[in-house]
């Protein structure tokens, strides 16, 4: 029963994974903190520079001799795991925006197949969403692993630092893409044909809405913008690990962020299911 849904998410996943791996390769080759030479095992300028600064930054593998790639780097501060989780959350959120149009795609000429199976409408939609969510979590895990792989490949693993609230940050960035998924599902479930555009512009809309918070405007308008931003996932996307995670004028703590993102996801999905039930082919 999950076959078609699995194929759809798998196709998205493969495309995303390839893009992420390409980005990872580019980072490996052209990292801003690294000087790279390819296909040359002779001592490079980078290695010479590294040797000169080794005492300053202490021990640690800052050179990699791999398959013809030589990298040196000069980190001087710990790299928080939270930032890595935030990046994975961002990637998963973009992925979620893409696959969040699943119900809209069904509504674009496939209801005759989708609704003539021995499953209820809600059962069908729930199954589709369950596979989507599994895909979102999988791309999150893949991104984290890929980033860790890149970090290990360039020998920066010793600079990875565990934040005290990394568990909560992980929770935040696991529900962050789900909130985007909920929003896109809720906005597009009953749309026929324009769902991709809506999903794409949802990021632009969210960014504009967030930026408006910083603008001076009449109190009434500001109150409206502030209220709208409470359902804006970008508001809760700060990767700071503490409760001080403040952004613009709205003060949002980590637990509140997790709860708000979860609520956005649940409400979005519920709205999508409600629309789905009311549709006609």
């Amino acid at each position: 029963m999950f076959y078609k849904e699995f194929l759809r998410v798998r196709n998205f996943f493969v495309v995303f994974a390839l893009v992420m791996m390409a980005i990872g390769l580019v980072v490996l080759l052209f990292s801003g903190h690294a000087k790279v030479s390819i296909g040359d095992d002779s001592p490079s300028t980078a290695q010479a520079e590294h040797a000169a600064t080794a005492d300053k930054f202490g021990p640690g593998p800052s050179q990699v001799h791999g398959t013809g790639i030589v990298i040196s780097n000069e980190p001087n501060e710990p790299f928080p795991i939270s930032a890595l989780l935030a990046f994975a959350g961002l990637v998963a959120a973009i992925f979620a925006t893409g696959i969040g149009c699943g119900l809209a795609c069904e509504n674009n000429g496939h209801l005759e197949i989708a609704w003539t199976r021995p499953a209820s409408r809600v059962g069908y939609a729930a199954r589709l969403m369950a596979v989507d969510i599994a895909g979102i979590l999988a791309i999150f895990a893949f991104t984290v692993l890929l980033c860790l792989g890149v970090i290990y490949a360039v020998g920066l693993q010793h600079y990875l630092a565990l934040d005290p609230k990394v568990g909560a940050v992980l929770a935040r960035f696991l529900v962050y893409p789900l909130a985007w998924y909920g929003i896109v599902c809720g906005l597009t479930a009953s749309v026929r044909g324009r769902a991709g555009a809506i999903a794409g512009f949802s990021w632009l809309g969210a960014a504009i809405l967030l930026a408006l918070l910083d603008l001076k405007m009449p109190p009434v308008l500001h109150a409206i913008v502030k209220t709208l931003n409470y359902v804006n996932p970008l508001l809760y996307g700060n990767f700071a690990s503490g409760d001080e995670a403040s952004r613009h004028i709205v003060q949002i703590g980590l637990p509140i962020s997790i709860a708000a993102l979860s609520a956005i996801a649940v409400v979005g999905i519920a709205a999508a299911l409600t629309q789905w039930r009311a549709l006609e082919a």
Partner: peptide, 13 residues
């Protein structure tokens, strides 16, 4: 079984 006038197949499958 229901076969609609325009087959509601998934183009990508």
């Amino acid at each position: 079984s229901y076969m609609p006038e325009r087959p509601a197949l998934y183009d990508w499958m």
